[in-house]
């Protein structure tokens, strides 16, 4: 990847990447319905697609990984491993929740995760970034809207 230094350019690329990610995740949700409906339980589908995704990312970006192995500090590796662990925890508890309650209840609850990120950022990452009132209000509107869209889809 090419390093970008200008803050405005970084912000714009960050916004574009985040929107692209949301589109990708939204598309996967539609494909996932087909897979879970016709071929495999959700946890099995996630595990196998994650394994294939790992192989793809490793093949595509082997050069970046090699350069980071030589230069990145241990803290970065640990934090990203913890990110993977926490995401796996999220996936696991999601399926456990679906065993106990209907998706109409679970999906809006899981949808509050951006608010968790924002709260943690506000309390623990003030040195890295400032959470503005505008961001918090925007996130509340998104989370509320996601809950309504989820309920409307049931």
């Amino acid at each position: 990847m090419i390093p970008v230094q200008d803050p405005k350019t970084r912000l714009m690329i960050g916004y574009a990447a985040s929107i692209g990610s949301a589109v990708a995740y939204g598309t996967v949700a539609v494909i996932g319905r087909k897979i879970v409906g016709d071929y495999a339980p959700p946890l099995v589908a996630t595990a196998f697609s994650m394994a294939m995704g790992t192989a793809m990312v490793a093949l595509l970006f082997v050069g970046d990984v090699r350069s980071d192995i030589g230069s990145a500090p241990r803290r970065g590796w640990i934090m990203l491993a913890l990110a993977g662990l926490a995401a796996a925890w999220g996936v696991s508890f999601w399926y456990l929740a679906l065993d106990e309650a209907p998706v109409v209840l679970v999906a809006p609850l899981v949808g509050v995760s951006p608010l968790v990120s924002i709260a943690l950022t506000h309390f623990f990452l003030q040195r890295l970034e400032k959470v503005t009132k505008r961001t918090a209000l925007g996130a509340l509107l998104v989370v509320g809207g996601v809950a309504l869209v989820t309920l409307g889809n049931q």
Binding site: M1, M50, G53, T54, V57, A58, L60, F61, D64, V65, S67, D68, A72, P73, R75, G76, W77, I78, M79, L80, A81, L82, A83, G84, A86, A87, A88, W89, G90, V91, S92, F93, W94, L96, A97, V106, L109, V110, G111, V112, S113, P114, L115, V116, S117, A119, L120, T121, F124, L125, L128, E129
Partner: peptide, 30 residues
């Protein structure tokens, strides 16, 4: 608990990605 897991994951990623490229970070988390 699931929401907490996903929320924490993004925060850990934010800290880790200060030092490591997003491509490598994606692979480690995967």
């Amino acid at each position: 608990s699931a929401a907490l897991g996903f929320g924490i994951a993004a925060v850990f990623a934010r800290v880790g990605l200060q030092d490591i490229k997003a491509t490598t970070g994606t692979l480690v988390s995967l």
